[in-house]
Design a protein around this nucleic acid. Structure first.
Lengths: 127, 127
DNA sequence: ATAAACTCTGGAGTTCACTCCAAGTCAATA
DNA sequence: TATTGACTTGGAGTGAACTCCAGAGTTTAT
């Protein structure tokens, strides 16, 4: 699969795909003899994983480390497990923050819906 | 309340507090005659709101707009309601992405926990 | 009253995660 | 076979959100 096709399939720019590879966020992609990228199923798996992690807001640094560890073979399995658990933890924390903010937004929206009808605010202060 | 106290109370650097005020993410803070910030309860309410929104990952730009609208009085109530709903929508989307990634991480962690015991991976490819 | 600690502003610097560009190579089509 | 379009690299540029700094003014403690 060419970089163009991968770019369209996953809605990631070609520049970003090359960037991810360059920084080691995905392992080196398979190439033709002339050096042109030819993504295999395996390569696509990495691209998709990278996209998923980034979309959740996990840092590229974490993915780079994970990829690096996988390159070093089975001896790094415990390290990879640790890394994955840390990332899970940080996502759970982020989710907490989002939930707290959602509650707050819902409260404010409720207030504003009343206010939008009466044309006046029914409270004094932002909170 | 001095900037130092506010900084400690909310765990936001003094530089960031000044920055938030400068860009309009919070309204101008009350000052002493000599120009030194003296945060009132109301000011603190804004600081805390800003911190909450930012911790959930909402853009500074959205808060700036919200603050700007509140300065313009009750006529902007519908606009503020719209803004709040948009931000809620984006948080819900972000939460979806986090949940998808959490599922994925949980799957991988499950695999790695088996692998950590056997010392060998029981699957072929990243997914 | 003078040092020490705190605060002010404007502007420059940093980090992260891309994004764009130039100059060159390669592949497909008229 | 010529040209058009896609691909390559290395490096520079961008936008968001801080973060740091210099130089100056203010407040507190001895």
């Amino acid at each position: 699969m060419t970089i163009k096709e991968v770019s369209e399939k996953y809605d990631i720019s070609q520049d970003t795909l090359r960037y991810y590879e360059r920084i080691g966020m995905i392992p080196p992609v398979t190439r033709s003899e002339s050096g042109i990228r030819n993504y295999t199923e395996k390569d696509l798996g990495w691209v998709e994983l990278a996209k998923c992690m980034r979309s959740a807001g996990l840092p590229v640094e974490a993915m780079i480390e994970y990829v690096r560890l996988t390159q070093e073979g089975d001896v790094t399995i415990p390290a990879r497990l640790k890394l994955l658990k840390e990332q899970r933890e940080s996502l759970l924390e982020q989710k907490e923050k989002i939930d707290a903010t959602l509650e707050r937004l819902n409260y404010k929206i409720g207030r504003y819906e009343i206010a939008a009808k009466t044309g006046k605010l029914t409270w004094e202060q932002e909170k």
